[in-house]
Write a protein that binds this DNA or RNA. Structure first.
Lengths: 354, 354
DNA sequence: ATAATATATAGTAACGTTATCAGCTCTGTT
DNA sequence: AACAGAGCTGATAACGTTACTATATATTAT
């Protein structure tokens, strides 16, 4: 029935409705003066001719696209897709479209995507910087391109940000393990070039220092956010001379790697090893062994970031930069117990069905 | 340093390099004749002035966008994000960008997104139709808009498709359970408006019929692809008069719902219940109870779909429509055992660490 | 040597929309 | 009755690029 290929333009509609093209433009675009009568007539004939506005032309003329870019490091990580959902929902409210780009943690791809989207004249970005990325963000800033940073911070970059209180979250998880009696707590961290990793490590150290538990280098592992590394590092911990009695995984993906390694070594959680994790693992949390975590609010993060960005775009935002810090949510489940040979009593009554 | 806001155009570059705007266009766009010398000069001054081509203008002029749309029902489902990765990787190879839109299984949102992307003049779509959607695909076709359907088929729609052999996969899973001795096999299916659900049900029935196992209505559940429904239906199965000894979940999300219900009822897999699942559950598969599944190849699906679409766009594809069927990969893990009180011997030596 | 062709550049006209301006009609106010 | 102003419509000129045409020069074929 309908056909975009006929390429009906405003002119054809104008001729058919016996008005000028500019009037059609006003009627359909909803700007300027049009009488109710002619508007109705125009909309009717537009429908009849199956007119579809050419946004390519419109965007070009106005040099606006009503589009923002979302740059995330990994589209298969549910954390980031949930951020994406938050961004999209908020954008949809304001009639904005979102270009989602996954950089695979590669700064080059990140730059490539950002450049391309600039050429396509997106009106702003929500960016979760990739590991080692972030340098071009300074250029963005000098180019007066609007953007909001989510999840990870970039050193010395003065920009609007939305992120979790990583120090506090890591502190609470570690402290929880200490209070259970653990003294040898391994940490499987992500890439130390990311603020997130640094901050979570800070929280980890803070808890240990506070309780006078020594920080042992051999228990500190990690250099990227991939599961493979996490698996490898956990294996190293497990096969070392003095393996830990508990492991802190610095995000959901790393947490899965830890669990895989434990499983392969035939170690059970929490009987043989206590495990805590930063981030909730959506699917895993529904199954054994039911991780104790601090859960972030990725949806809220995305939503707030988009909100701030869209305010900036429409010129409503405050002059000073905004830095929104969300407290993560501490959820105690059944993945921890006091260490095997500790003198401590069993504080938890976990699931003991193994 | 650089500044997009100066809005350097081809004209400025031309003036600076003392050539005509059209020559600059050819040098930068890489079409038509330009001598090596002037090209170098132009590229140099373009860089000096920090010229960024305005794709808005270029796309408009050529009525091409080098962009395709990807429509998926649920961006938080790892199956679809992996499809997305496949599509993106393939598109990147051909210098195409991908607009990823998640419809939340809502046909109205689906139509809205498709219409918007048409107005933005994407050059084609890869579509995993939402439940109950697909009607507007017929319009797309009469509008001569190119698209490839992935994962789910649309009845009577003659279009290029890429999907799994759902009948066969379901058949193999069900048959496996039967051979283990199960006679009461529950199925938690998705929305029966989707081809996928119908085909998996067909495979299920085929296996039962072939072995003369009666098809019991009370064991057949499901009407959408959400976890909540799956959880509820599993609960119904478990609390019914004659509960099944095994459950077949028709996709990964439903599988998680099944496991959650089992967990809450205190039933262990595979001791108390055997479970098989269509789709691999990426995170869950690394943990207990280690599901037996038929795994699809979402990445390949996305890649092939994009490949076919891009061929169509560049006019290379064959005249006849292509229908690519991928065989799912049967992976036996430890989530199944013979039923408790069956006379069968234990065929499997699963993980018996419970 | 001359014609034919390839190479290189410039000039011009679109692509379809919207911003701006000009003109006209209709209110309502002085 | 004159006039200000709002309401409505139409003509025109962009937005920045690329397709096309025209012209000039270099290269090759005859």
């Amino acid at each position: 029935m309908s056909s975009i290929n006929k390429r009906i333009t405003i002119k054809e509609v104008a001729k058919e409705a016996k008005v000028s093209p500019s009037t059609v433009g006003r009627a359909i675009g909803g700007y300027g003066y049009v009488s109710g009568q002619t508007r109705r007539k125009i909309l009717k004939t537009a429908k009849k001719l199956n007119y579809h506005p050419n946004l390519l032309a419109s965007n070009f003329r106005r040099q606006k696209t009503h589009t923002i870019g979302l740059i995330i490091p990994d589209i298969t990580n549910p954390f980031f897709t949930t951020v994406a959902r938050g961004v999209e929902d908020q954008a949809r409210k304001k009639q904005f479209k979102v270009f989602v780009c996954s950089t695979d943690e590669d700064p080059d791809i990140e730059k490539e995507y950002i450049d391309d989207l600039i050429q396509r004249r997106v009106e702003g970005f929500v960016i979760a910087p990739s590991t080692g990325g972030g340098k071009h963000l300074f250029n963005l800033q000098s180019d007066k391109i609007k953007f909001v940073v989510v999840d990870r911070e970039v050193k010395n970059l003065k920009a609007d940000t939305v992120h979790s209180d990583n120090v506090d979250g890591a502190y609470r998880l570690t402290n929880y393990l200490i209070k259970l009696g653990h003294r040898r707590i391994g940490i499987i961290n992500g890439a130390m070039q990311t603020s997130v990793a640094i901050q979570r490590f800070t929280g980890y150290k803070k808890a240990l220092l506070e309780s006078n538990v020594p920080i042992v280098d051999a228990l500190v592992k990690g250099n990227d956010w991939r599961m493979e590394g996490s698996y490898k590092h956990t294996m190293e911990l497990l096969t070392s001379k003095f393996p830990p009695t508990a492991i802190f995984a610095a995000n959901n993906i790393l947490g899965v790697g830890v669990l895989r390694a434990l499983r392969e070594m035939g170690l059970k959680v929490p009987t043989d090893m206590s495990v805590v994790c930063f981030d909730d693992v959506p699917v895993a949390s529904l199954m054994y062994p039911f991780l104790t975590v601090v859960a972030q609010s990725p949806y809220t993060m995305g939503k707030l970031a988009a909100q701030i960005l869209l305010e900036r775009i429409s010129g409503q935002g405050p002059a000073e930069r905004q830095d929104i810090v969300l407290k993560p949510n501490f959820i105690i489940r059944e993945s921890c117990r006091p260490p095997r040979n500790s003198g401590e009593i069993h504080i938890l009554s976990g699931m003991e069905d193994k």
